[in-house]
Amino acid sequence: DRMTSQEAACFPDIISGPQQTQKVFLFIRNRTLQLWLDNPKIQLTFEATLQQLEAPYNSDTVLVHRVHSYLERHGLINF
């Protein structure tokens, strides 16, 4: 699994950072998509996403918020 070119453009700090940071991003992105796909008729809020993310992935709330906002803005969740 890899970041898309659009994700890389929107998250230059992640793509240029350590490999582990990219893996954390990918986990948060994929898990958020999975959470929404589990029940697409219900809006997936940032707060609900954060509550359902497993530790330690829920510890970087800023990154979780950025990923959630990106997915929502680009019509990948909550459409």
Rank of each mutant, 00 (worst) to 15 (best):
M3K: 00
F46L: 13
A8L: 11
R2M: 14
W36Q: 05
A55V: 10
D38L: 09
I77F: 02
K23T: 13
N78V: 00
R29V: 04
I14W: 00
C10A: 14
R31K: 12
M3I: 15
E7I: 04
T21L: 13
R2C: 13
R73E: 06
P18Q: 10
S5R: 14
S5Y: 10
I14R: 02
L63N: 01
L63G: 01
Q19L: 14
H74K: 15
Q20D: 09
L71P: 02
L63V: 03
F46A: 13
F79D: 15
R66E: 05
Y57E: 04
Q22C: 07
Q34V: 04
Q51M: 10
M3V: 08
L35F: 09
Q6L: 10
I28F: 00
Y57C: 06
Y70P: 01
Y57L: 07
I14C: 04
N58M: 05
L35T: 05
A48C: 09
I77V: 05
F11A: 02
S16A: 13
N58T: 10
T61L: 08
I77P: 02
R73W: 11
A9R: 11
L37D: 15
P40F: 04
H65M: 09
F79W: 07
Q6D: 13
T61P: 13
R29A: 01
R66S: 05
R66Q: 07
Q6H: 07
F27Q: 14
A9S: 10
T45E: 07
L53A: 02
M3Y: 08
F46T: 10
Q22W: 06
G75L: 05
L33R: 13
T32G: 03
L35Q: 05
Q6F: 07
N39Q: 09
Q52E: 12
K41L: 09
E7N: 03
L37R: 13
I77Y: 04
P18H: 10
D38Y: 08
Y57A: 06
C10M: 06
Y70W: 05
Y70K: 02
F46V: 15
Q6I: 06
N30T: 07
L63K: 00
G17M: 07
N78S: 01
R73N: 07
Q43K: 15
G75A: 09
T4F: 04
L33I: 13
L63W: 03
V62C: 10
H74P: 00
S59Q: 14
Y57N: 05
R73Y: 07
Y57W: 14
V24W: 12
G75H: 12
L37Q: 12
A48G: 11
D13Y: 02
R29E: 00
E72F: 04
S5V: 11
Q34A: 10
F27L: 10
K41D: 13
N39T: 06
L71C: 06
Y70M: 07
V64W: 01
A9N: 14
T45H: 04
E47T: 07
N58W: 04
V62F: 06
Q43W: 11
T61G: 10
F46W: 14
M3G: 03
A48M: 10
T61H: 09
L53V: 11
P12E: 05
R2H: 11
F79T: 08
E72H: 11
F11T: 03
E7C: 02
F27Y: 09
K41C: 14
N30H: 07
E47L: 09
C10F: 12
V62R: 13
F27T: 12
E72Y: 03
D13M: 01
R66N: 08
L26Y: 09
L26V: 09
Q6N: 11
P40T: 12
L35V: 06
P56S: 05
A9M: 13
V24T: 14
D38W: 07
R66Y: 01
E72K: 04
P40G: 08
L26D: 08
A9F: 10
F27H: 09
Q22A: 09
L50Y: 08
K41A: 14
H68Y: 11
L37A: 14
T21I: 11
Y70S: 03
P12Y: 05
A8F: 06
R29K: 10
E54P: 11
E7V: 01
H65Y: 11
N30V: 03
L37M: 14
L37T: 14
L33S: 05
Q34P: 02
Q19V: 13
